[in-house]
Amino acid sequence: MVGPDEGDVAVAVSPRREWPLALLMLAPSIAVFVVFVFYPLGRTVWLGLYEVDPFGNRYWAGLGQYAEVLSSPAFRGSLWTTVVFTLITVPAGLVAGLALAVLAHRRLRGIAVFRTLFASTVATSVAVASLMWLTMLNPSTGVVNQVLKALGQDPINFLGHPSWALPAVALATVWLHLGFTFIVMSAGLQSVPDELLESARIDGAGPWMRFWHVTVPMLSPTILFALVVLTISAFQSFGQIDLLTQGGPLGHTNVVVYSVFRNVSSNPGVASVQALALFVIVLGLTLVQFRYLERRVFYGS
């Protein structure tokens, strides 16, 4: 028993201090985030308040620069271009990815080969994919134009044509993301319980009805995830523009990020405002994603 000299009073115990270790473990990440995420975000807001003349002198422009840039036809044009680009690439990408996933969702001889091919574009970087399409769409030697010629059509300079350029870049983008969309949709399909489809079969539902009434609803979280990821990445598109069209012809493919890029060193004030506009848009989209992820986590536990 406890000896009388030790007394019987409550011994207050300080919990073992873990914060120094926590600090040590978090410090590297925090340092990187502070220097390359939080500080630059604030700095960007501040840079947006200054105008830079061609000689590199900085002048206070205040919020006026924000109003000016955001209402300028150039910015509105590039925002509109970005939105159109998104509206083309996202639905097309979702449909194509889902179609491939459904098509390859059967245990057939040799299916592994098809699935590997469908997923293969995840291995292509934006630069690789863009150069492949640059070659395909080349006005004289590109395969696409050679097919057109063989069919007796005039060749089209897809990437140099005001109304063809954006769809052409969009096509390359859909292809670039197809592997990702296929993989995500496939994983989603594999998590739809077979029993559900079998019981629908027994209930007399045909393939089409099973697809719309069982597969698609069960897949809706996956589709939503792919939708958000593809949308955000459409808003961030840059490499394909830089390699295929440099924003041209006549600014018809001048998406927001490309416009930011062109202004980074020459006109950081304007670039900052444009970047912040992009931030607000992506933030909104990300919040949608988080809400959805939160729900997933909730369902999952």
Partner: peptide, 19 residues
Amino acid sequence: EEPTSGRITIGGRTVNGVE
């Protein structure tokens, strides 16, 4: 777990706060 109050001894040695 650490007790909120009170003493624990093992072999006569008070072990509160001991790893």
